[in-house]
Write a protein that binds this DNA or RNA. Structure first.
Lengths: 186, 186
DNA sequence: AACATATGAGACACTATTGTATCATATCTT
DNA sequence: AAGATATGATACAATAGTGTCTCATATGTT
């Protein structure tokens, strides 16, 4: 399964990179623009992705896989929930733009079962982590777990905004997010 | 200036309501869909808005004006920064969907000078409020003010998500946001 | 080197959207 | 009630995007 030709892999990667970049700044970017920006013929795009929807969904899957890949090392460390969360921010903040991509094209991405499966799994994991934090006493049990998950995601969003508009580094953004989350700003 | 005919006002309102609603769930909604959803002829839409961009920008201006209008009562109360912020969440949370609208179509809205002027003014006000909080001791001075502003916005986003996906009420969302912001969740 | 195949360029048909114009009719203003 | 005007329906032209196909060429594979 899957084509192994180096040319295919190369143009696929170029297309996906261009797709993320262009769709991030303009969710209505045309396939023609994306192909051009990738330095690839428009026909090649259609050879790899049946439609605009499929491209977006493939990009969404890639975002989730990248996230999983970045977080994989944490699985073995057996850290506390709080430490795990802190590391999560540090590891994911550099790819905060990917989360914004997912958000801005979610109405398309969510139609793909594969995307939804990945989303639900990672949501489940995060809920579990938050509830572990509650048990360990590092997270206030009176908060709704869904709120907490949502809060964590929105802190990634804050980071993305600060990195893009205020020249904040991922490292600093992650530290701000961690401090804000656990201690508040009061 | 401005047309005072009741019919114009009515169809303009219908179009803007439909625009917010449709563009919120699908930023690529066509003008035909918007006109239909507004129960108005497509030609009427073109009579009121020269282009898609102008419609979006008019909607963005409306969002900012609505925000300003909701916050106006606070001006006279001379509350502390902390109390003002708390009231801000309570007053704005019911219109959190408008902020998501602005975010999702920001690439278009930001091209309008009027939108940018409103945005900058309200950003300025919020920065001032945050810095007042720092002086009053209710906000940790070690945080970057821009980060704090960004955090406040992203808490509105959290509220929007919880209201739309988890049936949270605006009131509860606002209270969660306030508690999370000032005290953190740790 | 010989073969296989992915690619770019271009032509093509098709659709959706956009934006303009017209005109009889309904609704508002005065 | 009479006049003014906004509206809906419709037709229309222009454009942009989509998706398919072909074929000579460049590039990988073996």
């Amino acid at each position: 399964m899957g084509n192994t030709d180096a040319r295919t892999a190369r143009s696929r990667k170029a297309l996906m990179d261009a797709g993320i970049e262009l769709l991030l700044q303009n969710p209505a970017a045309s396939l023609k623009e994306i192909a051009e920006h990738a330095g690839v013929g428009r026909a090649t795009l259609y050879r790899q992705f049946e439609s605009r929807e499929q491209l977006v969904q493939a990009l969404a899957v890639e975002c989730f896989e990248l996230k999983e890949q970045k977080l994989a090392p944490l699985k073995d460390l057996n850290l506390s929930a709080r430490e795990t969360l802190e590391q999560t921010f540090m590891l994911l903040m550099p790819m905060a733009d990917r989360f914004h991509f997912l958000l801005s094209l979610w109405n398309i991405a969510e139609q793909d079962p594969e995307v939804m499966a990945l989303y639900n799994r990672q949501l489940f994991d995060l809920v579990a982590l938050v509830e572990k934090g509650k048990k360990e006493g590092s997270i206030d049990s009176s908060f709704d777990s869904n709120w907490l998950v949502c809060l964590i995601d929105s802190l990634m969003f804050s980071g993305w905004w600060m990195m893009g508009n205020m020249h904040m580094t991922p490292d600093v953004a992650a530290k701000h997010a961690i401090k804000s989350l656990f201690s508040g700003v009061g």
